Amino acid sequence: MSHTAHIPSHRKPRRSASKVVLRSGVAGGVLSTIAVAGAASPANAEPVTTQTIEMPTLTSGLAGDFARSAEATQRVANSLDLRAQQDAAATTAAQTAKKAKAEAERKAEAEAKKKAEAKRAEEARAKAAAAERASRTAERTTLSAPSSSNSGSGSSSGSTVSKVTSQATGSAAAVLAFAQAQLGDAYIMGSTGPNAWDCSALVQAAYRQIGVDLPRVSQDQSTAGTQVSLSNLQPGDILYWGGAGSAYHTAIYAGGGEFIGAQNPSTGVVKKSLDWDPPSGAVRVL
């Protein structure tokens, strides 16, 4: 017998086949198992060896990271959408402001044109009124010339005009020339010309021709100059009715015992004798 007859052989049988099975699980700490089985020939079977390997586990922390990432992405999207809305609103507001500015400029230009046209129309009316007054003055002068030549007394209108002209000189003559040019104009309370007057407006306008700026109302005009006696009147003196400082009517002394004034709605601007309506007093400005 061989000396090795009772020694077990250390030679491993040859594997005829192998099989690997992989099973994996996720969440909750599931373990993955790998089983390796080797089947030898029926005569030399070898025990199956099993090896267990623990695989990484997806924990709740990773799921939280995914959630936070999704939330951050949504915030970015919302921010971009809000910025787009703000840009659109700013563009709309700028367009609206531009249209409003253009409309305001158009209205301002139209208003300026309207005012310019009104001013030109007023200037044209003033020129026409001045021309009409000049024409009336020329007609009165022409009509008064024969009367003054045919009359030996001072009772006619022509001789009165000549007498007034000869007595008034310098600034007084200019004041009376303006007042006489308004003879026949209407009397309207509060009117200041050019075709209708009240008493103090006519006096004020006449003196404005020589650069003298009188007060607007009769009460103030009755104290605007030096008080003079009615027996010592000069052409151009301001006559007043009522008390000094409380007068209710004013007119201009024309010389020759007459005055020119805007008397009342029934007479308009007239030249009358002092006897027709005696004044209360007079002031001298010139």
Rank of each mutant, 00 (worst) to 15 (best):
F178M: 02
I188L: 10
L143H: 11
A124T: 10
T59Q: 11
L286D: 06
N232I: 02
L82F: 04
V269G: 10
F178A: 01
S32D: 15
T49V: 00
V217C: 03
A70M: 06
K163Q: 13
L214I: 00
K113R: 15
S246L: 08
A124G: 14
G242R: 02
V217W: 04
V270E: 15
A186H: 10
A118C: 07
R136H: 11
A39T: 14
S273P: 12
E122T: 08
C199M: 06
R216V: 03
L202K: 09
D220I: 01
A88Y: 07
I34T: 05
Q219F: 02
G152R: 05
Q95D: 14
A121W: 10
G190Q: 00
S171R: 03
S60Q: 10
E103C: 01
Q209Y: 00
Q167N: 12
A129P: 09
D87F: 06
A251M: 08
K271N: 15
S60M: 09
Q234M: 07
R83S: 15
Y187H: 05
L233W: 02
P13W: 01
A90G: 12
A129H: 02
A63M: 09
V164H: 07
R11I: 12
G243K: 09
I238D: 13
S273R: 05
K98H: 10
P56T: 03
V270C: 10
S222T: 09
D237E: 13
D213S: 01
M1Y: 12
G256Y: 02
A102N: 11
G268Q: 03
A104M: 00
M1E: 15
L62F: 12
E54K: 08
G38L: 02
Y248R: 08
K99R: 15
K271V: 10
A130L: 05
E139D: 12
H6F: 13
A201W: 00
L82I: 10
A201D: 06
D213C: 00
A17V: 15
T4L: 15
E111W: 01
L82E: 15
A72I: 11
D198G: 03
E103Q: 05
N150M: 02
A224F: 02
A27G: 14
T141C: 05
A130H: 05
T73C: 08
A88G: 09
V48L: 08
V269M: 09
R83K: 13
E71T: 15
R216F: 06
S156R: 03
A72K: 09
I188K: 07
D65E: 14
S229R: 01
C199Q: 06
I53L: 06
M55F: 09
S9C: 15
S149M: 08
V20R: 14
T142P: 04
G158F: 00
S151H: 08
A93K: 06
A251V: 03
Q234T: 12
R68L: 12
S200C: 03
T91E: 11
L58T: 11
S151V: 06
V285T: 01
S273N: 05
R208E: 02
S149W: 08
D185Y: 04
F66S: 07
S153Q: 02
P279V: 00
A43F: 13
P47D: 11
K99D: 15
G256E: 11
K19A: 15
C199P: 14
R133V: 03
W241K: 05
M189P: 12
T223K: 04
N264L: 00
L202A: 11
L239C: 08
F66E: 13
R15M: 13
G281D: 06
V203E: 06
H10M: 10
P42N: 04
N78Q: 09
G281W: 00
G245W: 02
